[in-house]
Design a protein around this nucleic acid. Structure first.
Lengths: 277, 277
DNA sequence: TATAATAATGACTACTGGGTCATTTGTCAA
DNA sequence: TTGACAAATGACCCAGTAGTCATTATTATA
């Protein structure tokens, strides 16, 4: 399990620098100081590696953002926290962001494209729920358009730190985008992206995650996590999924226990959705 | 010369579908119905092909946009024409747009990256001049930020037709973005992209195009163009560059002569800049 | 210590892709 | 018809790739 992490870390560095296709397994193993065979003990293929990377980071980032949006009580602060969290994530995982932008919907395999669409959809939902909460009826006609603009701001401005190593003032950036978003939300009268267009565009979202899939992920995490509180909480949550006995408030508490562990954020996000918290 | 065009057209189709790296020279030649050797008679390498493609289309698009901005007299209409022209271009050359978005700053060679930065810079200049003309002093503090937003709108919304074959209402799209741009221009008070940041970010713009380079391009065009008016105009302009004898007004007329020929737009753009028209 | 089980190695295979070049085909003036 | 030149071909070369597997090293167990 440690070997797997080493490979992921070192490979990400190379992918960020040279791109996925242009990095050979040979180079990765050299960069890790292991043999080629050892690589294939951890990953069935090079593709499995990139999928693992994307899952790893997208889970973290997506659930992080969603958590911020759900837990910021002060509407006045919500947008600010949202933008700040996003750029903070991108900054923290700038190598990953580089890969993501470089490889953007690249040719690579079908599974990955679906995966990216899936995460994209999740982000869209989070943004939409934020918009509805902040502006309500006011943006009924323009909310999809607004969501698109917000995604646009995210992409456009993130290129700045991805490609130039300039120290950026994230607070100012967030503040600036809050103002822009508010302007667009309050005064836009000619939306381009309509509900209808969204319907046409969106692929049949490849199914919600099932209980079985959640259980599978929990099982994996239980094995790799050592911290006793998180581990025990996971075991209880596992039991709860198999046979519900605990009251919601306790489940919520258990989720709170694991929320901050870097390897549990995704599980906690999935369970929050599952239980509709 | 015809063979070259055939290859470019057919290759673009494949690149748009599968991406540049994933398309082999073999596949290209099969798709063209020619031999592998024949390919290398037209292009020294696969890289030379993609460079030719990018040059071909970026020249057209860049100069088209610049021309629109320079020649729309009615300020009220300027932004609309600008957005419309852009999306019209993207729509017309949607295969190229696909390649561009897919391959976005991809790993491929240094030369290409510089090339893209160059075209990007040109577009930025066009946008800036438009902003200054429309809003003047009003946006002194926010113009770079605004320029960045406009570029963001261009990118974000263009993904729509690139990835989904939905028939889009370009007029509505342009109208919608005009409103957004005006909103941001008139009410933004917290810019993020400052003059200073731009200075830091921009690489030393790899030199203006020299007179010799312009002459070289003219020479090429003279050979491949058959239409008498355009051809003769080019020859006169060539002479003028070597030894200036004609008054500006005539030069301007000659530029007008070639402006609409698809293979002359770039030349006309370069000369307009050269003579500061 | 001896034995079983597991982890790690790197030479090897099978294959692909960019690019070359001796050879063939086509063209046209003498 | 001939010979000279250009255009076009595709078998071939070679570098580099993902992935395999017999062998060796390491660790855990009895």
């Amino acid at each position: 399990m440690l070997k797997k992490q080493l490979i992921m870390e070192r490979a990400l560095e190379l992918f960020a620098r040279h791109g996925f296709e242009a990095t050979s397994v040979q180079q990765i193993t050299e960069h890790c100081g292991i043999s080629k065979g050892a690589f294939y003990l951890s990953f069935k293929s090079k593709d499995e590696l990139i999928i693992a990377l994307i899952d790893h980071f997208m889970m973290q980032i997506t659930s992080e953002i969603d958590h911020i949006v759900r837990n910021t009580k002060d509407d006045e602060q919500l947008l600010y926290h949202f933008y700040y969290a996003i750029y903070h994530s991108f900054h923290k995982h700038s190598d990953f962001a580089k890969v993501l932008i470089k490889e953007q919907s690249q040719t690579f395999n079908k599974e990955l494209i679906l995966k990216m669409q899936y995460y994209d959809k999740l982000t869209e939902n989070t943004i939409l729920s934020m918009i509805e909460r902040l502006y309500g009826e006011e943006v009924k006609q323009t909310k999809y358009d607004l969501m698109y603009c917000i995604k646009g701001f995210m992409n456009t401005y993130s290129q700045l730190f991805v490609f130039y190593n300039v120290p950026l003032d994230l607070k100012l950036l967030a503040e600036s985008l809050v103002e822009k978003t508010n302007l667009l939300a309050r005064h836009t009268t000619v939306p381009f992206i309509s509900q209808e267009l969204i319907e046409i565009v969106k692929q049949p979202m490849n199914g919600e995650i099932t209980k079985e899939q959640i259980l599978e992920i929990i099982r994996q995490r239980i094995e790799e996590i050592e911290e006793p509180i998180e581990k025990e909480s996971l075991i209880l949550l596992q039991g709860q999924l198999l046979e519900p006995t605990l009251p919601p408030v306790i489940v919520k508490g258990l989720l709170e226990n694991i929320r901050n562990h870097p390897h549990c954020k995704w599980i906690s996000y999935l369970l929050r959705r599952y239980y509709n918290f």
